[in-house]
Structures are given as structure tokens and as C-alpha cells.
Design a protein around this nucleic acid. Sequence first.
DNA 1: GCTTGACCTTACCATCATGGGAAGGCCTAT
DNA 2: ATAGGCCTTCCCATGATGGTAAGGTCAAGC
Lengths: 138, 138
Amino acid sequence: MNIGDAAKASGVSAKMIRYYESTGLIPAPGRTGAGYRVYSDSDVQMLRFIRRSRDLGFPVERIAELLALWRDRSRHSADVKRLAQDQIDGLERKIAEMQAMKETLQHLADACCGDHRPDCPILADLGNGPSLLRIMHR
Amino acid sequence: MNIGDAAKASGVSAKMIRYYESTGLIPAPGRTGAGYRVYSDSDVQMLRFIRRSRDLGFPVERIAELLALWRDRSRHSADVKRLAQDQIDGLERKIAEMQAMKETLQHLADACCGDHRPDCPILADLGNGPSLLRIMHR
DNA sequence: GCTTGACCTTACCATCATGGGAAGGCCTAT
DNA sequence: ATAGGCCTTCCCATGATGGTAAGGTCAAGC
């Protein structure tokens, strides 16, 4: 199977497959006489694993650990669960951060009449005092 | 005021102040005979504006528009509100995305006993079928 | 056998906002 | 005069992805 077919079958672009190879996330595959990369079904399965992990927000660095556990038949599921929980915690942190931004902005936007007049509490907040954000979270 | 003082006063690092200047987000300030950048209080105010906007997640490109409106005394507050609303919408989208990831992971982690045994539904999902994510959101 | 088009290869550049570091100049206090 | 704390510019790195360009390969149709 050439890289294009592996890309279609796995949902990982050919570009990214080469990138993952260059960073050592995946092993270098065999080559044809002409230098074309050749992939097997199990390579495609590995690529799908990576694709799903990315879809769940794991950084490539973590995926390397997940892959190692995947291949390790004597792994402890506790190790996998820990990686998943760390990812959950990280997502939660980012969500909370963005939620705070959103609420602050919503407050400001609600206070802005949004018409032809120049007066605007959004700009006033950005340009002045110690930020509504800080006040709201005090 | 030298760049270090402006950085402290605004909360924007000296490094980023130079970067914003290089990209044209802020105008080049005056220089001393020795080539040191010199900042005024109103420069610091502008930098604080940028800092707060970044804290609310605006990309630098949007901040350029915000700054233009800030300086334009005949602006329409509707334009500011629209930028804010776009940012709110973008945040909301990203939050929903991450929330979906988190829920999927939470499901998988809940199903993993997390002990010394190798069996793990997290790895099973990543390695097999059409992803719990897709199933959950169908 | 030759052309065409679809594929492959490598190599480089760009993103976005930020930090790090090196090499060298300036300024102030001791 | 020297030390150390600023400042300057320039280059490199991040993380994951896409784009592009120049060139090689392969299969189908003429």
C-alpha cells in the first residue's frame, strides 16, 4: 500500500505520516525499489490509533506513550488511565480558562449598546482600569 | 521610559513589545541617542490594551482592528460589539469541541479499571472500531 | 514506444505567539 | 575603571499542520 492509500484508509494525511516518521513517532516503513513507502494493514491500524488520539486532543508526545502502552502486552491499565485522566484534567483547565474569557466578554458585550454611537464599554474596559476579568474573579 | 519599564508597567514582555513593533501592530517609538526605545505613558496604555485583549483570547490580528476602533473617535460601537461577539462565538465553538473530547475520554476512563491488569477499554477504543466519539455524537 | 496524468520523493517556507540565547553596546554606581 | 544591569539585533525553537516546487515513477491509452 502506498502512502496515499494509507492516508485515505487511516484519515492521517500523507504529509503527517511522513512527519510522524521523521519525528520517530512511527517506525520507517519499507520502500519499493523506486523509494516509495510501503504500508501494511497493521501500519494503517497504528495510524488510525494516532488519528483517534489526536481527535481526543492528546499531544503527539503523549501519543508516543499511548502507543508504547498499546504495544506492551504486559502494561498496567492504571498507566493508561493516568494518561487519560491527565488529558481530561488539561482539557478541563483549558475549558475553564476559555469559559472565563467568554463570560467576561459576554458581560462587556451585553453592556454595549452596539449602535452608531462611539461610546463602548468594551473599549473602555480594554483601555482602562484593572480589567473586569480580575474584578469578576476576585 | 525604557522598554523594560514599559514591559513592567504594561504586563507585556520586552520581547513581545519588539515583536508587536516589528509586525506593525504598534508604531515604532522614539529612540535615545544610543538607540534605546523610549515609551510614553500613552504607549504603556496601548500596551495594556493589547495585553487585556490577549487575555480575552483575541488573536493579534483582531487586536489590530480593536486598536483602530479604539483610536477612532467616530467609531460605531456596533463594530466593536461585532468583534466581541465573533470572539465569543469562536470561544464557544472551541469550548464545545473540548467538552466533547473530555466527555468521550471520561466515558472511556470510567470504563477502565485502572489496576495492574493490561485490559483497557481506552486502548481498545483507540485501536479499534469507529471511535466512541462518533458513536456518542450520532 | 510515447505521452499524459496521477502519484511519489525531498526540501523548504509559513503559520501564531512566545521564549531563549548569543554577541555586543550603553549607563550608572561604586 | 570596573561590575552588573540594562539595551540592541539576529537567529533558533516551539507544535501540528498545510503549501509549494522540482523532480522521479508508474499505469493506462494511443
